[in-house]
Design a protein around this nucleic acid. Structure first.
Length: 423
RNA sequence: GGAGAGUUGGCCGAGUGGUCGAAGGCGCACGCCUGGAAAGUGUGUAAACCUCAAAAGGGUUUCGAGGGUUCGAAUCCCUCACUCUCCGCCA
């Protein structure tokens, strides 16, 4: 959510910048400014009346104390009109604020100046790449490899739950656990403190990171208790800092978390979602940082470098994309996607998305910091990234490392797996 | 799930209708004292919004959340959430 100050001070800039995201904000911004002005005017009026009311009340108290009941009662009569007016104004005030809020949540975050214009994923910029695409003959896609070596059972998942809930078995399950541990260890070594968050969150948390009110269709909702299954650990981990005022010296705060992630993915279908390509439940290790506004883009670079080190240690061919305005998420100011090449499907698969949200989330979260000697609090910047999402990594590992006798496990994972080949 | 007790500032804790944003203590900051420290001592110590070019200053709000009674509520009433204790159930 943009701040009112941002909008009031740079109205034209907000409209211009949002064009990059293909968002026409003109009318919305005008309405917001008008409502905000109304809000201020109403508040000034209501405050003045309330001040009058307060002093009148004090007088009445004093009069009663002095035993001047008649005068006190006379004064009481004066308050009735005031009370009525205040009530009227606060009702207007409440409604205005509600309207304002409803409009504010419709505005996407402003894209960073380095974000290229563009309509779709085709307009994303390749920033850099690395790794070797293996040359394979008779390569099998991962869903066939999964069946061949009996390491992932998609049909069994359908029986237990439904499509998109695979069952990992034997070495498949072990490899999954190895990846989680590898990613967590790497993040810990890089200075991220591990947390193990709840897998369900309440409405406030959903609002704080931007899933609610608009994107509730993407989350599984447990209506009986009004809780949501998390689509990413970003939600509970970032919400740790909701309503928190940090000390400037504590920044940046760095957390990593493993969690299962749940996504309804309504409307997805077709060959792109085969096998592990798109699931309703999957595992992911997430990194989250709360940063000082002055250094958040350096922090973002650091996170990108961390993810890069992961894909290269795994020996996968990778590339980094700078997302264009049209492909970026609602809440992000700048996003880098990581893709790995999956050799049998012969396509790039997105395995990580690393973003700076600037103050967009912290404004909703009321996540602030105060610097030594400063009087005012400021909104912190929040950032997060996948490091990494498992299923497509698994898909690429299986496909790229297959040979006649089985599937080779990357060296860095062997200590975590306890085996070096799946056969 | 049943019964009871609670929720006050960074922390502890007082406060049952009026001048309470809230005593007192701890912690923290700055000063005095000291050769230095401890002890002692003095001062200060929340957030949001509005007003002001800014700062200063002023106004309003906030004692778990929301609603109500009242001229006036941390204090009374209602609803909800959470915490603790006992019982039940249970990985």
């Amino acid at each position: 959510m943009l701040t009112l100050k941002q909008i009031q001070d740079n109205k034209q800039e907000v409209v211009e910048r949002l064009k990059i995201k293909n968002f026409d904000a003109e009318a919305l911004v005008d309405q917001i400014v008008a409502l905000d002005n109304k809000r201020k005017a109403t508040q000034a009026e209501a405050d003045a009346l309330q001040a009058e009311m307060n002093s009148l009340s004090k007088e009445i108290g004093q009069l009663f104390k002095d035993g001047k009941a008649a005068e006190a009662n006379a004064a009481k009569d004066k308050t009735a009109g005031l009370k009525e007016q205040i009530k009227e104004l606060t009702t207007i005030q409440d409604n205005t604020e509600k309207e304002l809020q409803a409009l504010l949540v419709q505005l996407p975050n402003l894209p960073h100046s380095s974000v290229p214009a563009g309509k779709s994923a085709n307009d994303n910029q390749i920033v850099r790449d690395g790794g070797q695409v293996p040359t394979l003959t008779n390569a099998l896609p991962h869903w066939e490899l999964a069946r061949k070596y009996d390491i992932i059972d998609f049909e069994l998942g359908v029986k237990l739950t439904g499509a998109g809930f695979p069952v990992y078995k034997g070495k498949g399950a072990r490899l999954q656990r190895a990846l989680i541990n590898f990613f967590l260890d790497e993040a810990t070594q890089a200075g991220y403190e591990e947390v193990l968050p709840p897998l369900m969150v309440n409405e406030d948390s959903g609002f704080g990171t931007g899933q609610l009110p608009d994107k509730e269709g993407q989350m599984y909702h447990v209506t009986l208790d009004n809780l949501y299954l998390i689509p990413t650990a970003e939600v509970p981990v970032t919400n740790i800092y909701r309503d928190v005022i940090l000390n400037g010296s504590e920044l940046p705060v760095r957390n990593c978390a493993y969690s299962a992630c749940f996504r309804r993915e309504a409307g997805s279908y077709g060959k792109d979602v085969r096998g592990l390509n798109r699931l309703h439940q999957f595992d992911k290790v997430e990194i989250v940082q709360v940063a000082h506004p002055d250094t958040s883009y350096e922090v973002l670079d650091g996170m990108v470098n961390h993810v890069q080190s992961l894909v290269s240690k795994l020996g996968l061919p990778w590339r980094i994309l700078r997302l264009c305005g049209g492909d970026m998420s609602f809440a992000s100011a700048l996003t880098f996607d990581f893709e790995v090449f999956s050799a049998a499907q012969e396509r790039w698969l997105e395995v990580s998305s690393v973003s700076n949200f600037e103050t967009f989330q912290s404004n909703r979260l009321k996540l602030r910091f105060k610097e030594e000697g400063d009087k005012k609090t400021r909104l912190a910047h929040t950032l997060n990234g996948s490091a990494l999402a498992l299923p497509r990594i698994m898909a690429a590992l299986l496909e790229n490392n297959q040979f006649e006798g089985g599937i080779r496990i990357p060296e860095v994972l062997v200590p975590f797996c306890g085996f070096d080949v799946i056969n």
